[in-house]
Simulated assay, not measured.
Amino acid sequence: MPTTRSDFSGPRDLREMQAMCSRVWSPTARFHPGQLAWNRYSQPLDRDGMGRDEAISLWRIGDEVVGFGWAESPDWLELQVDPDHPQVAGDVVDWFEDWSDAPQQSAVAMAGDGVEPVLREAGFRPEPDGWHFSHHLLDLRELPPVHRVAGYVLRPVEQDEAALRAAVHRAAWSGLGPSRVTTGAYAQVMHAWPYRSALDWVACDDQRQLVASALVWLDEATGVALVEPVGCAPAHRGRGLAGAVTLAALHRSRELGAHTAQVSPRGDDDYPGPRRLYQAIGFRPVARTVTWTRSLP
């Protein structure tokens, strides 16, 4: 059957992209379905449209998505292609070149992925020593117990707590720049598949203020639970709260049928803290991303 392309038109398309990610998931696959939900909905947006400087396009064979390109900006491409249809990678790169007018462009791929020869042929060059993400996995049969932190209570969030949940995320991530996670954006996250409030855990201090959080996305089809994101407000760091809420959410995911957990922290030495946290829990690296760049005349 021929391959067809269509531009992103709303939540239904995202759900089809997630279905592909679930269908082709492996330890070396670029995306877990939960990552797409977080990337898309954790910012204010028109659910049915695109931002001014971004674009998404999908490739299908029949009714099944077999690849997509997500231009997060004119100089940055994220892509994933069904390994059974590697020819789609060339179409994705050609689409990005036609859409983007940036003189320098970057694309992210998993090391050893089938899209790498296509990127190389298109003039991209790898930057193996640059910043990258490292896929880590944990067999949930080996999950350590939740450690309690004196003075704090761990619990899942409620569906009506979008404002509080967004606020604790912003507090945790403020050191990296202004966060786009507004109350409205987090409400979108909470309505996205495969979000479950039972897997969205927070730590509360003795004033009942939310001070740390961990969100886990369980894909029932694969049994893989993705941790994304985790954070702790600066004033409460150093007590083990980030690890505690992560473990609490993972224990609940195991109760709901997950057998494997995944997390993808930075793998380079410029931002080592999260990686150390996850490895202390028992996560081990299995794959990494590589950024490819090219300059156009």
Rank of each mutant, 00 (worst) to 15 (best):
residue 47 R to H: 09
residue 68 F to G: 01
residue 69 G to C: 04
residue 37 A to N: 03
residue 90 G to Y: 08
residue 81 V to G: 01
residue 39 N to Q: 10
residue 79 L to G: 01
residue 54 E to T: 10
residue 61 I to Y: 00
residue 54 E to A: 14
residue 91 D to N: 11
residue 81 V to P: 00
residue 62 G to W: 05
residue 47 R to T: 09
residue 66 V to Q: 07
residue 77 L to H: 06
residue 51 G to E: 12
residue 83 P to V: 13
residue 55 A to S: 14
residue 51 G to N: 04
residue 78 E to K: 04
residue 58 L to T: 09
residue 83 P to A: 14
residue 63 D to F: 02
residue 57 S to E: 06
residue 58 L to M: 13
residue 72 E to A: 12
residue 41 Y to E: 00
residue 46 D to S: 12
residue 92 V to H: 02
residue 58 L to Q: 07
residue 67 G to L: 08
residue 71 A to M: 15
residue 87 Q to S: 13
residue 86 P to H: 06
residue 49 G to H: 01
residue 68 F to C: 07
residue 56 I to Q: 07
residue 48 D to C: 06
residue 85 H to N: 08
residue 63 D to N: 03
residue 60 R to Q: 15
residue 43 Q to F: 04
residue 53 D to E: 12
residue 89 A to D: 04
residue 48 D to R: 09
residue 46 D to T: 11
residue 91 D to C: 05
residue 80 Q to Y: 02
residue 53 D to G: 03
residue 62 G to V: 05
residue 40 R to S: 13
residue 58 L to N: 09
residue 82 D to I: 03
residue 82 D to S: 03
residue 84 D to Q: 07
residue 47 R to Q: 10
residue 44 P to Q: 05
residue 40 R to A: 14
residue 52 R to W: 04
residue 36 L to G: 13
residue 39 N to C: 01
residue 36 L to T: 14
residue 77 L to V: 10
residue 62 G to A: 02
residue 76 W to Y: 10
residue 76 W to L: 08
residue 40 R to K: 08
residue 41 Y to C: 02
residue 87 Q to E: 15
residue 64 E to M: 02
residue 43 Q to R: 12
residue 66 V to L: 01
residue 39 N to A: 10
residue 39 N to W: 00
residue 78 E to T: 02
residue 92 V to L: 08
